[in-house]
Simulated scan of single mutants.
Amino acid sequence: MATGMLKAVEAIPGTPLPHGILGGCADVRDVGDVHELMGVEWLALGCCPVRDWPDPCNDESPGDESPGAPAQKEFCRPETEHAAPITVYAGAECSALGWSYEEAREHAEATLALGEQQALEAAFWRDKLAMDTIDLTPDAGPVSVAQGVAALEGCLAESYGGVGTLHVPAGAAALLGCCNLVHENPATGTLRTLAGNCVIIGAGYSAMNTGPGNIPAEPGTAWLYITGPLVIRRGPAETIPDRSASVNIRTNDRRVLVERTYVVGTTCTVCAIQVDVCP
């Protein structure tokens, strides 16, 4: 059938994956302050250990005085952490003869809405997770998914006492169900491990699937990461140009660009481990 005889209908709608980085695991905050969207910094909270102090009444040392120097309480100086901006965009291009500005803008905005989570995941993985992490992979090589989750949760628990975030590529997500590693919280719809950490399953994570230093994973393996909680600052979606003057008069093509800036922050330790996905 000739193309000219086909009836034009609306595009097939899509839905971002429900447990991605913009799902229920992250604290997503819409902000209008341009300064926050240029990057933020803060004093880390929860990374300093809370220690116990022994009861002097239970001191069983002989004599009137304890040997050695008297014990002193330890103090921790909080570190300054920061997060840089990530801008994602979608551009639509078509002949101006067959596409109005309103149609081009609507298409670009819909494209951004569907794909911005995946783009944000890929950028956060590439620029933060893979570049600022402790590699727990043993010398013997990749481990099972269950062993990997256990190692990551242990690493986080040693440095941060609160609920953290497990980052899983979509290509490895099905294996989380093999050992009942994750369950869905019916009240919030989020995925949780048995230890209580929230789970992000990312399409952008799966597209990257790199280890520390952004070295690609070997075939049949995947990388998992764990962090503290996530706070995501989100700016408004901006359309460029914001009016109908969007045609290149030399080519007669119409172009419309829609972009949005995010700032993704997390805290304390980032841990990584390589797992087998083809045991």
Rank of each mutant, 00 (worst) to 15 (best):
G148L: 08
G68V: 07
D132E: 10
K73C: 07
Y160C: 03
F124D: 00
D135N: 15
A44W: 02
R77K: 15
V163I: 15
V149I: 14
A44M: 10
E74A: 15
P62Q: 13
E65Q: 11
G154V: 00
E93Q: 12
C47T: 15
E41I: 01
D33I: 13
A26Y: 08
A146K: 03
E116Y: 09
G164Q: 00
E121T: 04
I86R: 02
P49C: 04
G115C: 08
G39T: 05
A108W: 07
V40M: 12
E103W: 03
T87D: 02
T80V: 15
G32I: 05
G164R: 01
M38V: 02
E158C: 02
Y89G: 09
S144Y: 01
P49L: 00
L136V: 09
F75R: 12
W99M: 15
E65T: 14
D139F: 09
H35G: 08
D132N: 12
A90T: 10
E79F: 04
E41V: 02
A150D: 12
K73Q: 12
V143H: 00
D30R: 13
V34F: 08
E106Y: 03
A122R: 05
E41Y: 10
M38C: 08
G63S: 06
V31K: 06
V88L: 08
G164N: 03
Q118L: 10
L136M: 07
E153R: 00
L43P: 03
E65H: 11
P54M: 10
W125A: 03
L43C: 06
V149R: 01
V31D: 11
D139V: 12
A123S: 10
R29N: 12
W42H: 01
L156W: 00
P85F: 08
D127T: 13
R51H: 03
I134L: 15
Y89E: 10
L112M: 14
A44N: 11
V143K: 00
Y160D: 01
M38H: 10
Y101L: 06
E79Q: 14
L45Q: 14
K128S: 12
A84F: 08
P85L: 09
P56Q: 07
G148M: 08
D30L: 10
T133R: 02
D127R: 11
V34G: 04
G98H: 01
A69T: 11
V149F: 07
V88S: 07
V163P: 04
L129C: 04
H35A: 15
I86F: 03
V163Q: 15
P138A: 09
E93P: 01
D132V: 08
L152F: 00
L129W: 01
L152R: 00
P54C: 11
C57T: 13
D59G: 02
C47D: 14
V28F: 04
G68A: 06
Y101W: 14
P142A: 13
A83C: 13
V40S: 08
L152W: 01
R105M: 13
L45H: 13
G164L: 00
G98K: 02
W99V: 13
Y101P: 02
L156E: 02
E121Q: 08
G164A: 07
V163R: 15
A113F: 02
S159H: 12
A110D: 10
R126H: 10
F124S: 05
I134S: 13
G68M: 05
D135C: 10
M38S: 15
L45C: 11
L129V: 04
W53G: 02
T133M: 06
C47K: 07
R126S: 12
V143R: 00
